[in-house]
């Protein structure tokens, strides 16, 4: 059974004012209905003419655009489809057939901090590995290496294995690497919610500086405070569809009313 997939087109045209265009975005997942998920069951199902999975519709036709230099917030309840949307934008999942996504420029996603961090390796080794995953060359990593540790305030722990770090230290190190990433479009999933108050302040400063630089950003968050503070525009997703779009305060208001 071949599944048809939609289009994710990458272009690079600075004169185009749209950074991202999403047209008629649909996505469903195949969830296995059987408890066992192996070869025996697959052959059995094929013989009996059972599909063995059911389609779970997650995104049901999204349309929106992100302008260059815009700070877009995406809000919605758990399970509304926000993360799936981000993963499709990031190219991790493929969109379904008839969907079209146009990404204009270099998109850098942060679905999770510290991807590929390995507890058995030292901080130094992990920094280089994580840097490679973010697309940095070794030369670039050498240049920013000291800054990374300084920003994370963890210089003393460079040669410790990561398993000896506290969870707060891990997040600080990961964030410190992540913010080095340079892309035309940054896609961030909940990364604001890290560290203690002092580190939060640093993060907020970083986001403020991005906003000042007119960096194109898509931020998925549950923090309405951040939506009001940073975003130029916001989108609320509910049950796989866009339920509200526009002014951040109004969207935040609508989001809060979901819980009343």
């Amino acid at each position: 059974m071949r599944r048809e997939i939609g289009k994710r087109i990458l272009i690079n045209s600075p004169e185009n004012e749209n950074a991202i265009e999403v047209h008629n975005l649909h996505k469903s997942f195949r969830l296995p209905t059987e408890r066992s998920w192996g070869l025996k069951q697959a052959i059995f199902n094929r013989l009996r003419g059972i599909k063995g999975y059911k389609d779970q519709k997650v995104l049901k036709g999204l349309n929106f655009t992100v302008k260059q230099g815009e700070f877009l917030g995406i809000v919605g309840r758990n399970g509304s489809g926000k993360s799936t949307l981000l993963k499709i934008l990031a190219g991790i999942y493929y969109p379904e057939k008839d969907s079209t996504i146009i990404v204009n420029g270099n998109l850098v996603p942060f679905i999770e901090l510290g991807v590929g961090f390995n507890p058995e390796l030292t901080g130094r080794e992990n920094v280089y590995l994580n840097g490679a995953l973010l697309g940095f060359s070794n030369k670039e990593m050498d240049e920013m290496y000291d800054d990374i540790w300084k920003f994370a305030e963890l210089e003393k722990f460079q040669d410790q294995k990561l398993k000896n770090y506290s969870s707060g230290m891990l997040v600080r190190l990961a964030f410190s690497i992540a913010i080095r990433a340079k892309g035309d479009i940054l896609v961030l999933d909940e990364v604001l919610a890290v560290g203690d108050a002092a580190f939060q302040q640093k993060c907020n400063n970083y986001f403020a500086s991005l906003k000042e630089k007119k960096q194109t950003i898509i931020l998925v968050t549950h923090s309405m405070e951040n939506v009001r503070r940073f975003c130029d525009r916001a989108i609320m997703i509910e049950d796989g569809k866009i339920a509200a779009e526009g002014d951040p305060s109004e969207v935040a208001e609508k989001y809060m009313s979901l819980f009343k």
Binding site: E120, L121, L129, A132, F136, S137
Partner: peptide
């Protein structure tokens, strides 16, 4: 770069 870093990690681990 990614290939080299992953190979290094693999070998070390």
């Amino acid at each position: 770069v990614l290939l080299r870093e992953l190979t290094k990690t693999d070998f070390k681990l």
